[in-house]
């Protein structure tokens, strides 16, 4: 079942990106009479690369900063900022990604820059929240054992807390990436090069074939990355000696 899911996902994604012409007979019935069935204004491969680049450019700083903040507020020195940080994260989550994207445009103009900014800002919250939950869930007895073994606070963080929190941290990154992939699609409304371009072109030129092509491809990529992170999380759980949870 799982293997089949991987084969279908990789097959459809790879096929749509590398050999779009193969899908012509499938998409033809949805295209307007005489109109093109395969998106030809840009290669899907280059749009995919650009889409993933937007996500990566935003997610790397997002992960680093959110993790650092979560570590900071769980140290004794940063404890006074914890309530504020949680309130901020909670309020931030009520901001829809589209709103963040739209408000980045007046600041940075059109193109990739506002999109990356929006993805970066929106990506902070899930990673921060999950890292916080992971770090706070480490039992006090475990921390005390580390200390009793003569570990410095830095060693406790690197060798005890971070490995134990890793599955939840990865879960946060997974949520952020799924949201970022989705928001990057909307980024094409502010002229960022992404796969959303194909969907929007289909909507504006009334060509459902384009919509299906772009929609199925972005959907498959999102599910692929989601599943890949699922694997990483399983590995992380196994490494820290936790029982892998029953697949939910």
């Amino acid at each position: 079942m799982t293997a089949l899911r991987w084969i279908i996902l990789i097959g459809v994604t790879g096929g749509l990106i590398l050999f779009p012409a193969l899908f012509e007979p499938l998409l033809r019935p949805f295209a307007p009479a005489g109109g093109p069935a395969i998106y030809d204004r840009a290669s899907l491969a280059s749009l995919t690369v650009s889409h993933l680049a937007l996500v990566a450019l935003a997610m790397i700083p997002s992960t680093l900063i959110a993790l650092s903040l979560a570590i900071l507020v769980t140290r004794p020195a940063g404890a006074e900022f914890l309530p504020m940080a949680r309130v901020l994260a909670n309020i931030g989550q009520t901001f829809p990604p589209v709103a963040v994207l739209a408000l980045s445009v007046p600041l940075l103009g059109f193109g990739a820059r506002p999109t990356v900014l929006a993805l970066f800002l929106y990506g902070l919250l899930p990673i921060f929240e999950n890292a916080l939950a992971g770090l706070r869930a480490v039992p006090g007895s475990v921390l005390l054992s580390g200390k009793a073994m003569g570990m410095t606070p830095r060693q406790v963080l690197a060798q005890v807390e971070m490995p134990l929190a890793l599955p939840l941290i990865l879960e946060g990154i997974r949520i952020s990436i799924v949201i970022a992939l989705s928001t990057a699609t909307i980024g094409s409304t502010v002229a960022a090069r992404s796969l959303g371009e194909v969907i929007i072109a289909g909507l504006t030129s009334n060509n459902p074939a384009y919509v299906i092509q772009g929609g199925v491809l972005t959907g498959c990529i999102a599910v692929l990355l989601y599943d890949a992170f699922g694997l990483l999380i399983e590995i992380a759980k196994r490494l820290t000696g936790r029982e892998p949870q029953q697949a939910a």
Binding site: V178, G202, V211, I212, G215, G219, V223, A247
Partner: peptide, 20 residues
């Protein structure tokens, strides 16, 4: 699993595909 799969699909993609 099915519901998680649906949640993972980007919003414009799902909105667009439902049009058909």
């Amino acid at each position: 699993n099915l519901l998680t799969l649906i949640q993972t699909i980007p919003s414009i993609a799902l909105f667009g595909i439902l049009i058909v």
